[in-house]
């Protein structure tokens, strides 16, 4: 429900700080989104620091997955992952159904 003008705060300020994480842009289908294999990950956290959308999930100091609500599929995490190509824990899954 959109608010009426009478219900806005003075000056149109927004006191619901950080609410985009609850209601913001999500599930954007812009690009192909990466997959994550925890067995191959060395937990260097470079994917975390270079993710523009805070979509790398970290639990107990381990990378455990990708938050697809916010991942826009930019692919920086794959490119910046220092593990050699064949062993990368982050990769794009080939979409066989498209073939």
């Amino acid at each position: 429900m959109l608010k009426k003008w009478q219900d806005l705060e003075i000056g149109g300020i927004n006191s619901d700080s950080g609410n985009s994480i609850k209601k913001g842009l999500n599930n954007l289908e812009i690009c192909k989104k990466p997959e994550f294999n925890p067995e191959l990950c060395r937990n260097c956290f470079l994917c975390w620091v270079f993710c523009p959308d805070n979509a790398i999930i970290i639990e107990n100091s381990m990378v455990t997955g990708i938050n697809y609500d916010f991942c826009k599929g930019c692919g920086i995490c794959i490119t910046e992952c220092p593990v050699t190509e064949a062993q990368k824990p982050l990769y794009i899954k080939e979409d066989k159904s498209a073939l």
Partner: peptide, 10 residues
């Protein structure tokens, strides 16, 4: 926090 509208790779 997440949920912003900046471009992919920004």
């Amino acid at each position: 926090v997440s949920g912003h509208g900046l471009c992919p790779g920004c």
